[in-house]
């Protein structure tokens, strides 16, 4: 489904975010990407929908090259890739439903977007997305009035409304408390299993990664240092990824054991 071929990203100023990444993600997998902040996790995810352009190599999504795409093609590609953000990135001053309808924008003529009058079929898709994350009762509430966990579920619904083939989640639980983090992670797991959407999640908590990841990718300084099953990801592997021993900050449950 997603294929990185020698993908390299160097930011202006000389920071090497990704170095020669080659990686294949089969359809339907739930992959967790772990690593320190600055290891290139966010860049890796954003390279898939072209929010960060590659400086070298290429990324193929469903056979389409991200860097080779025209603006129009890139937007078509993005429409098939849902994204979830650390800070939810909701438009807070408008309703939950309007936020979710953003996921239908790509399929909606400009005048409907301008007037905010979406087709009833699109509204139905948005409602169903909200139902899937069990927050449909808040559809007409202002996004700013929701708790962090609720906002993140709206973020997931927005991505689902795109009816995507791929779901990208950039540190989806970093702004949430531990119980809410599990709720959100289980939502993602359920969506991955029920809908078969290929899912990539960035996490920095290792215990969450092991619990939910079918496959774990360890990134360090822009390179893949681990690629395997959760159970193989032990203390030794951890030191490779983090370059130091495990501390309380690296796990969600505040106990430095795996």
């Amino acid at each position: 489904m997603i294929s990185f071929q020698h993908a390299t990203v160097t930011y202006p100023g000389g920071v090497h975010a990704l170095r020669d990444i080659t990686l294949d993600v089969p359809a339907g997998q739930l992959i967790v990407v772990v690593g320190l902040s600055g290891a290139g996790k966010s860049t890796l995810i954003r390279a898939i929908n072209g929010l960060v352009p590659l400086t070298d190599g290429q990324v193929l999504v469903d056979g389409v090259s991200v860097s080779g795409a025209s603006r129009r093609e890139l937007r078509d590609l993005r429409a098939g890739v849902g994204m979830i953000f650390q800070n939810f990135n909701l438009t807070k001053r408008t309703s939950v439903l309007n936020n979710v309808l953003m996921g239908r924008m790509h399929y909606t003529p400009w005048w409907r977007v301008m007037t905010g009058v979406y087709r009833s079929a699109d509204r139905e898709i948005a409602m169903q997305a909200l139902e899937r994350v069990e927050i449909v009762d808040k559809a007409y509430v202002r996004a700013s009035n929701l708790s962090g966990g609720q906002q993140q579920r709206v973020g997931i619904a927005r991505a689902l409304a795109q009816q995507p083939k791929v779901l990208l989640a950039d540190e989806p639980v970093a702004s949430l408390d531990p119980p809410t983090s599990h709720v959100v992670m289980r939502d993602l797991q359920r969506i991955n299993r029920d809908l078969g959407i290929t899912t990539l999640v960035n996490l920095h908590f290792l215990d969450l990664a092991r619990r939910y990841g079918e496959r774990i990718i360890g990134l360090r300084a822009g390179r893949i240092v681990f690629d395997g099953k959760g159970e193989d990801c032990d203390e030794r592997v951890f030191r490779d990824i983090y370059g130091r021993s495990l501390t309380a900050d690296d796990v969600l449950e505040a106990r430095p054991q795996l």
Binding site: M127, E131, I135, D137, A139, Y140, P178, H182, V183, R186
Partner: peptide, 23 residues
């Protein structure tokens, strides 16, 4: 982590009925 029950599983969610569109 001794139980198989995931932490946070007891977080209740309201069953969602679709709300009426407010005027």
């Amino acid at each position: 982590m001794t139980t198989t029950k995931a932490p946070g599983a007891d977080v209740r969610r309201q069953p969602g009925a679709r709300p009426r569109k407010p005027r």
